[in-house]
Amino acid sequence: MQELEGIYTIWLREMKRFLRYRSRIVTSVVTPLLWLIIFGTGLGAAVRFGGVSGGYRAFIYPGIIGQTILFTSIFSGVSVIIDRQYGFLKEILVAPISRQAIVIGKALGISTASMIQAAILLLLSFIVGVTMSPVCFAVSMVIAIIISMGLGGLGLVIAAFTDSMEGFNLIMSFIVLPIFLLSGALFPITGLPAWLQGAVYINPLTYAVDALRFTILRESVLPLGLNLAVITFFAAVSVSAAAFLFSRKEQNLM
């Protein structure tokens, strides 16, 4: 019971931090919409994409949702660095809860923030001419929470290795963009060169985007069951790794 209360308290703190900065919520929604409207319309007109009903904008729509989850989840790991710099992390560590509960609470807070943004984008599906049914919305949200937990865990892993905002941002610049570009968010993953296809298939976001694309557009490369299995495994591994590394790193600082 004490562990659950600790997880809830940390989750609640992360949510209050997220909701306090309303400009962050607006930016996280406006930016993906700009990608859909400007990039989707411009490139869609240039390439005459006809792979799915609705054209290129509909095709990249699930990928842009994945992009939003990716950026929010991983960059939220910076909260650990802020808490460490201001000494709040030490106060959490002396609480009578396990390190694993701390990481789970933070990961749940990160994934909830990602889900809020994903839900907003799903409700705006009419912009790209996609009909969003209640079942489609519910399944998409399940996919969103699983991959956001995994990516949030990855962000916490990176935060465990860095002690400054500058170091965190530097690592992010080398990780986030390749993950997004190699996820199939902006182009089909079939027919790629072997070396590029290998990089695409080791990317966990690829399976999340493919699962979202199947759920929303009924178009996918891989079976939905395989996609869900991969992102669930990734989430379990990344959160477990974050808990282990976080525990060792912070124990050395105490």
Rank of each mutant, 00 (worst) to 15 (best):
M149R: 11
M165L: 15
Y61P: 02
Y86C: 15
L124G: 10
S238E: 08
F39A: 14
S164P: 13
V94T: 11
L182E: 07
V78N: 12
L177C: 04
S140R: 03
T31I: 08
A95D: 00
P223D: 13
I104H: 04
M149A: 14
V52Q: 06
L226H: 04
Y61F: 04
I104K: 03
V103D: 00
Q100L: 04
G198I: 11
K90M: 00
A159C: 12
L217Y: 10
A159T: 06
A211N: 11
N252R: 15
S23H: 07
S53M: 14
A118C: 02
I74P: 07
G153Y: 08
G77T: 07
I175W: 06
G44D: 11
L224G: 00
S28N: 14
G44V: 12
T131S: 14
V139G: 04
I38L: 08
A45Q: 14
W11M: 02
L122W: 03
A243H: 12
S164A: 15
M115W: 03
T41L: 06
E166Y: 09
I116N: 01
I179L: 15
R17K: 09
V142Y: 04
F234E: 07
A242S: 10
R17F: 14
Q251E: 15
L89S: 02
I120D: 02
Q67N: 10
T232D: 07
V94Y: 09
G6H: 15
I38C: 08
F88S: 12
G44M: 11
I10N: 01
V230P: 12
V230N: 08
F187I: 05
S111D: 00
L222R: 05
F39G: 07
V237T: 12
G54A: 02
I64D: 14
S173Y: 08
T112N: 10
G87C: 08
R248I: 05
L151R: 05
A138V: 01
S133W: 00
F180P: 05
M141H: 06
S220D: 11
L151D: 07
A101R: 07
L154R: 00
V78S: 09
L12N: 07
N252E: 12
V139C: 09
S247E: 15
R17I: 15
A208D: 01
D83Q: 06
I64R: 13
S220H: 08
S183C: 06
S111M: 01
F49C: 06
V78A: 11
